[in-house]
Design a protein around this nucleic acid. Structure first.
Lengths: 102, 102
DNA sequence: GCGGCATATAACCGTCAAGGCATGTAGGGG
DNA sequence: CCCCTACATGCCTTGACGGTTATATGCCGC
């Protein structure tokens, strides 16, 4: 779950949120984030090493896009916890049913 | 998504993994984690402030249990990304269908 | 009330990450 | 070739974090 650590950073979440809409070059991300270019490149490196994004070279530009794998892993990790609130919902329903009887 | 930052820590993930099975006192967590009690208490504080756990006082013990809310939020945040790999799977299926034709 | 148990907080230290600036590198255009 | 563009990397500083030991707080039994 290395992806989780990478996504803990607000800036990096902003990056993946942007990439979810469409793939972007570094310059586009720099513009939309209002941060220095080296800072953005460093965040992209972290995301790359976590496998969350990949870069494709076109001329001098690097086009970054999301990679689904780690998101699936995160989803799988979260799965057992999903049972928690579905169970809660079931309990709530039972409770409401009992109240309806009275 | 403050919960994400809290869950980025491996030790804190071990704690929530333990609490997923059953609610625990601090001493039980200290024993199962093999760490000093203050360290565990600090992690529990972070988890509390992120709303991931709540504590119930019984005598001198604090019984910690998971709170579903933030996990649901995390799930909701992840939802749009889920579309990503389901879409990929659909593409893969189409690809395989085409190969089957040849 | 007092001593002891369970937990929280305080003070401190080492480490690490995020941001800035300056510089390196690679590819295209003139 | 040269230079400019687009990006990566190195270095530095600062602030936050995880761990420790020592100490405070809160609650029970006697």
């Amino acid at each position: 779950m290395d992806a989780l650590a990478a996504l803990a950073e607000p800036t990096r979440r902003r990056i993946v949120d942007a990439l979810r809409v469409r793939e972007c070059t570094v310059s586009e991300l720099v513009a939309s984030l209002g941060m220095s270019q080296p800072a953005v490149s460093k965040h992209l490196r972290v995301l790359r090493e976590a496998g969350l994004v990949t870069a494709q070279t076109r001329a001098q530009q690097r086009i970054y896009r999301l990679e689904p794998g780690p998101f699936r892993e995160l989803d799988a990790w979260l799965a057992p916890y999903r049972r928690m609130w579905t169970h809660h919902l079931a309990e709530l329903e039972r409770h409401l049913d009992r109240k309806e009887d009275t």
